[in-house]
């Protein structure tokens, strides 16, 4: 079998690439060397660990769904329409990417908290968000949403509108065009955005601890459990950290979009 020959990379480029790879991988190796393998099973199957893992998976999945429901329309509006202030809006939507998560948590508290902007309205409707699993999902969505919006908007811009124009010419209304043309064409970008959102939600810590609190089985996700266990049992914390890494890697591997060219 012959191999296609491509334009080679400059040789020096491999050095920083390798350094970068080592920089990312070495800390993972360091974690693995710290794991107390003899007790690994017991450490990660304790009641609190299982609760934390399940809660993390549940809330991250819910967050991903919420990100899709809110983020897909946002990305479409940003990519397919023009209106005054659009660039400002885009920057603001991306704000959670640079905002320290703890600040995000505070912002959510000032919005949905008992004394927050919407606090009174929520109280009237007898909805209590703080200290609930809902609060965890909101905190995770706040930090994860930009990832979905950014990757989907990029995919939409790359895909362009030519196919949509053709579809409209064939008599397809906007909804049909969206369902049968736009969405399938950007599916890889959407999947990538979903994976990123899920991964970000899985690792979310700061906004959650600030906004949602920490209670086993309700709001104490895996990262919070790791942080807590570190106080008393570093071995358990390391074991859980490895578990978190493995879960993230598995999710990313499973959902990795097929890179076939259209």
């Amino acid at each position: 079998m012959g191999r296609t020959r491509t334009v080679g990379l400059p040789g020096w480029l491999y050095v920083p690439a390798l350094v970068g790879a080592v920089f990312v991988l070495l800390p993972l190796v360091a974690i693995i060397t710290k794991v107390d393998w003899a007790n690994f099973g017991t450490l990660i199957t304790s009641e609190s660990s299982k609760d934390a893992l399940l809660l993390s998976l549940r809330t991250s999945a819910a967050t991903t769904v919420l990100c899709v429901l809110l983020g897909v329309p946002m990305a479409l509006v940003l990519a397919r329409t023009t209106f005054p202030g659009q660039n400002v809006l885009r920057s603001l939507v991306l704000l959670p990417l640079v905002l320290p998560p703890v600040v995000g948590g505070l912002a959510l508290l000032y919005t949905f908290g008992r004394k927050g902007l919407l606090g009174h309205a929520l109280e009237v409707m007898d909805i209590r968000i703080a200290f609930s699993t809902m609060a965890v999902v909101l905190a995770q969505t706040f930090v994860a949403l930009p990832f979905l919006v950014v990757s989907l908007e990029g995919a939409l811009r790359t895909a362009g509108q030519r196919y949509e124009v053709v579809a409209a010419g064939l008599g397809a209304g906007p909804t049909t065009v969206f369902r049968r043309v736009t969405l399938p064409l950007v599916l890889p970008g959407l999947l990538a955005g979903m994976v990123l959102s899920f991964a970000r939600a899985l690792g979310e810590f700061g906004a959650t601890i600030t906004f949602a609190g920490s209670l086993q089985g309700v709001t104490r996700t895996l990262p919070l459990e790791i942080y807590l266990q570190r106080e008393v049992d570093p071995d358990a914390a390391v074991a859980l950290a490895l578990l978190l890494v493995v879960v993230a890697v598995v999710v990313i591997a499973l959902a990795r979009p097929d890179r076939r060219e259209p």
């Binding site: 508290l109 703080a130 609190g213 920490s214």
Partner: peptide
């Protein structure tokens, strides 16, 4: 029956000063 078991005493205080708890 706490609604939250916080990481530090400062976190507990923050939840009270913000009026959540």
């Amino acid at each position: 029956k706490p609604v939250s078991e916080e990481q530090s005493v400062k976190d507990v205080l923050a939840k009270v000063t913000s009026g959540e708890a």
